[in-house]
Design a protein around this nucleic acid. Sequence first.
DNA 1: ACGTCGATTTCATATGCTCA
DNA 2: TGAGCATATGAAATCGACGT
Length: 379
Amino acid sequence: MYFLTAKDPNYIVKGSRDPLGMQVIWQAAGRRLIPDLSTVSSSIIDFQIMCIASYYKKELRIEDKAFQSFFNRLEKLMAFVRFQKNPKEGFNGVDRINKLINTPNKTITISDQQEILSNQKAYGVWGKYNRPFSDAGITEISGFHELMKKKIKTVPAFDKMIDRLVRKPVDQNTEFNKSQLQLIYPLIDKPEGDERNLFIKTLLKDNCENSLYKAISENKNLLGMSLYELIENLSLNSASEELNHSLDSIRRTELILSPLNHIFRYLQTKSYWTRFEISVSSAIEQTRTNVDTEGLDISIQELNKFLTLPNVELVLGLANRNEQVSAGRKSVAWMKMNENGLEVNHFEGARSMYDYNPTIHNDNSYFISSYLNIYRQLH
DNA sequence: ACGTCGATTTCATATGCTCA
DNA sequence: TGAGCATATGAAATCGACGT
């Protein structure tokens, strides 16, 4: 017979992410190069939807409170449109839209009761794009409103459809003919002309005199490269000292973070390690990198020290770091070293070291993959 | 203390691979 | 050829950080 008591929420492991507090470190390195994009803001259609919403907010003088409800309806309408235009292209909410559109009805329904995500505001376009969209300053670019007005005029039916969405009282449905949706396709076509230039100027700017953009424009092969390949090739021909410096910080940061992360994840694959097992682990030994930390942040320099220590001390360093990070989250450590060995209590995210090469593989994107994704969609 | 933002993990599904 | 397994993909949901 078992006696179960409720767990004290302060003494269970909370979450499964970032056990070594690495997120703030790689983000800081990435932000020095790419100012506004996030790792999940990588769809140009989502940015186009943000632009359409902002345009109508100003054009129709929609108050803040009413705007949230309008945005929610607009996101649903555009979800039907983008799905019908290209069912293969993904977006958050695609599954429910797929079910809703595949009915015998001739119409689709925009309903305040029918969300396309469990929390559409948080997990949809608004949640993912509001911060990058405003930080990039898209609506502050002079001529934004006129540009959008001109673009929307090319789809005369759209103003009327939006008008129906805006005027509809709370909890009353709006229906649109499925055949109408294709009229809206041009609004989410690949941006051209002024619209394209607007996105290039705001989303593909960088903190190194736009030399990242120039370098990629001159060598399209860079688009298909992994992080380290990209950095190496960029550094070879880059004219910008600043870009080289940012890229080198990113490279050296990742050469420290990624091996330590992999060792931690590898330790999670077993519930117990003797000190001897740790000391003779060739997997841990082979995952070491040798990085010059000159000029890097103090927190990354401290992490790098672990990589210079013998296996047991390295693992102890990681366990201590995890304990500190967990304590900051009012939680308990995932693993604990005692006199005999390492006790592992939390296994989420465990990964073998098979095929891992710390000089080739990276774990963190430094916002560069989002940047490249947006670049591809504009070229 | 609470709410918002959004990065990361997990999960479900699709696709690929192996071997009978 | 196709069952069964492995891997890839990408959407959903969670939960930490940060700002108010």
